[in-house]
């Protein structure tokens, strides 16, 4: 596994032993015994994970964690400590670290923890950064959602239409939105969830700026839509939630778009592209910025 890691411990042996466990696994390791030095390093370099001791001369672990959170909030922190008292653990967890390891530790414990932490950090980094004007935007959206709910409140059987409009507005239907709608329409949240989870049109995950649908129905399958999928995946680097790291594209496969006469079909946002040549899949994406 790849990852850029900084180890801060006043005890040189800990730094060396971490290095000897993690380097063979593909991680890039930087070690320091001076915590003041560490803050400089964090400021100047792009680390995925910082491993730190708690009890250190000068800047101690608690202070270091606070500083890291201030300078680079996206860096994941793992604590190694010999003083694993209940209070200490509670304090550091509240500071927002990923995990802690008690001394002494077995090499595989260290490795597993670091791998998990790297994985988490990657995932967090892949989520697109919120836009600057989140606050007023959220307010506007809440208002718009309220309007939708009020419009359909009296219409029986309008749940699907409310959800469609809400998804159109927000882009997806996370649990908070589902609760909001359930409250507004005065129906159980379970009913809203049962509908959202049933219909493939609704999504509980955020989508990219442009959403790509690749049809894998039997006509498109016969015309090699599988190859289109492979090309997209190979070139766009989707994460586990099928979104690209820059949040520009997301994809899903659908079973039939009802345009079998011109298979294979790729739909991007509201545009239907027919008879897509798998070799030219990426050319279509050029028009979407």
């Amino acid at each position: 596994m790849e990852g850029n890691i900084l180890i801060v411990d006043d005890d040189d042996i800990v730094v060396k032993s971490c290095d000897s466990v993690l380097t063979p696994e593909g991680f890039t390791i930087t070690g320091t015994t001076d915590s003041t030095d560490a803050i400089e390093l964090i400021r100047d370099n792009d680390y995925d994970i910082v491993i730190t001791d708690l009890n250190m001369p000068g800047v101690d672990g608690f202070e270091l964690i606070k500083q890291v959170n201030a300078i680079k909030p996206s860096v994941g922190i793992v604590v190694i400590t010999g003083f694993a008292s209940q209070q200490n653990i509670k304090d550091i967890l509240q500071l927002g670290i990923i995990d802690y390891i008690s001394k002494p530790f077995a090499p595989h414990t260290l490795l597993e923890t670091i791998m998990k932490a790297t994985y988490l950090v990657r995932k967090i980094k892949a989520i697109p950064a919120p836009e600057a004007d989140t606050e007023p935007d959220a307010k506007k959206k809440t208002e718009a959602l309220n309007n939708i709910i009020n419009e359909f409140k009296a219409v029986p059987g309008s749940l699907l239409r409310v959800l469609e409009s809400a998804q159109d507005l927000i882009g997806y239907l996370p649990p908070s939105v589902q609760r909001f709608i359930a409250n507004g329409l005065r129906i159980p949240v379970s009913e809203v969830y049962s509908v959202v989870s049933f219909y493939p049109y609704f999504t509980m995950k955020a989508r990219g700026k442009h959403h790509i649908r690749v049809c894998v129905g039997n006509a498109c399958h016969a015309k090699k839509s599988g190859q289109i999928m492979t090309r997209l995946k190979r070139n766009l680097n989707f994460n586990d939630d099928n979104i690209t790291a820059d949040g520009k594209f997301s994809y899903e496969t659908v079973r039939c778009l009802g345009a079998c006469g011109f298979a294979p079909i790729v739909e991007i946002d509201y545009d239907t592209h027919g008879a897509v040549d798998p070799d030219k899949t990426l050319d279509i994406l050029k028009d979407y910025h």
Binding site: L159, P200, V254
Partner: peptide
Amino acid sequence: GAGTFICGEETALIRSMEGK
């Protein structure tokens, strides 16, 4: 509807129109 094959079946279609 919201895109599912089963809603081509008439009783399922009706349930879906009722918002279920």
